[in-house]
C-alpha cells in the first residue's frame, strides 16, 4: 500500500467504524442522550418536589380531596397521546427496517406515519395546554379550581416540564422531516440507514421520557 492510498483510506472526519467499533455519530448521540436524561430528571424532580408540597399544604387544610391540582389532568387525552407516541416508536422501527432492506416506498410510508403521529402528539399537547389554561391552570404560582385560588407551583412546574418535552418532540419531528427529504433526494446514498437509525434513537428516547412523565406525573 502506497503512502498516498494509505492516507486516503484514513481520510475524512468520521470513519465508519472507529476504535470502539461504533459509528461516531451514534456514540455521540448516546452520550447526548445520557446528558438529556439528567436534564429531564431535574425537570421531573422539580415538579414532584413542588407537587408534594402542594399536596401537604392542601392536606393540612383538609382540601386535598377536591382541590388536588392533579384533578386538572385528564387521563383520557394523555392516554391517547401516550398511545400515539408509542405507536410512533413502532412505525419508526418499521421505517428503519425498511431502510435496511432498501424498500424505499415502505420506508417513506412508515417515516411519514411517524411524522404524522409525532405531529399529532404535539397538536394534542397544544390542545391540552389550551384546555388547562381555560380551566385555570396557568404558568403562574397559583391556580384557580372551582372558583378557589390555591397558592401552588403546580402549573409552573407542569408546563415547564411538559413544555420542554413537547419542544423535544417538535425538534424530533423537524429532524424526521429533514431525514425524509434527504433520503428522498438521495435514495441510493449509503449513509441513509445510519441517518434513519440516529433519528430513531433520539425518537425512542423522547418517547421513553414521555412514558416516565406519564407514569410519574399523570398516573401515580
Amino acid at each position: 500500500m502506497s503512502a498516498t492510498s494509505h492516507a486516503h483510506d484514513e481520510a475524512g472526519q468520521a470513519p465508519l467504524v472507529g476504535s470502539l467499533g461504533v459509528d461516531s455519530r451514534k456514540l455521540g448521540l448516546w452520550a447526548f442522550i445520557g446528558s438529556e436524561t439528567l436534564f429531564f430528571t431535574a425537570l421531573i424532580t422539580t415538579h414532584l418536589i413542588f407537587y408534594a408540597r402542594t399536596k401537604a399544604d392542601l392536606a393540612a387544610k383538609g382540601m386535598l380531596e377536591h382541590m388536588d391540582p392533579k384533578l386538572y389532568l385528564g387521563i383520557d387525552l394523555t392516554t391517547i397521546l401516550a398511545a400515539i407516541l408509542l405507536a410512533s416508536s413502532l412505525t419508526m422501527v418499521l421505517a428503519l427496517a425498511a431502510t435496511k432492506s432498501k424498500e424505499w416506498p415502505k420506508f417513506r410510508f412508515w417515516l411519514l406515519a411517524t411524522i404524522v403521529l409525532g405531529s399529532a402528539f404535539v397538536l394534542g399537547q397544544v390542545y391540552e395546554f389550551t384546555h388547562l389554561y381555560h380551566e385555570g391552570l396557568k404558568l403562574a404560582p397559583q391556580y384557580v379550581y372551582e372558583g378557589e385560588t390555591v397558592k401552588s407551583l403546580f402549573g409552573v412546574t407542569f408546563f415547564v416540564m411538559t413544555g420542554f418535552h413537547g419542544l423535544h418532540v417538535t425538534l424530533g419531528v423537524v429532524w424526521l422531516i429533514a431525514v425524509y427529504f434527504k433520503v428522498r433526494r438521495f435514495a441510493a446514498s449509503p449513509e441513509n440507514p445510519m441517518d434513519v437509525e440516529l433519528v430513531g434513537l433520539y425518537w425512542h428516547f423522547v418517547d421513553l421520557v414521555w412514558v416516565a412523565i406519564f407514569t410519574l406525573v399523570y398516573l401515580i
Binding site: 436534564f39 422539580t46 404558568l139 404560582p141 401552588s152 409552573v156
Partner: peptide, 29 residues
C-alpha cells in the same frame, strides 16, 4: 451541565414570565 441548564431555564421563567420557582414569597424555594 443539564442541572444548571434546568436551573437557569427556571430562573429565566421566573424573571420573564413570573414563574416563581425560586421566589419564596410566592411559594418557590
Amino acid at each position: 451541565f443539564p442541572t444548571f441548564t434546568v436551573g437557569s431555564i427556571q430562573l429565566l421563567f421566573d424573571r420573564q414570565f413570573g414563574a416563581a420557582f425560586f421566589n419564596p414569597a410566592q411559594g418557590g424555594d
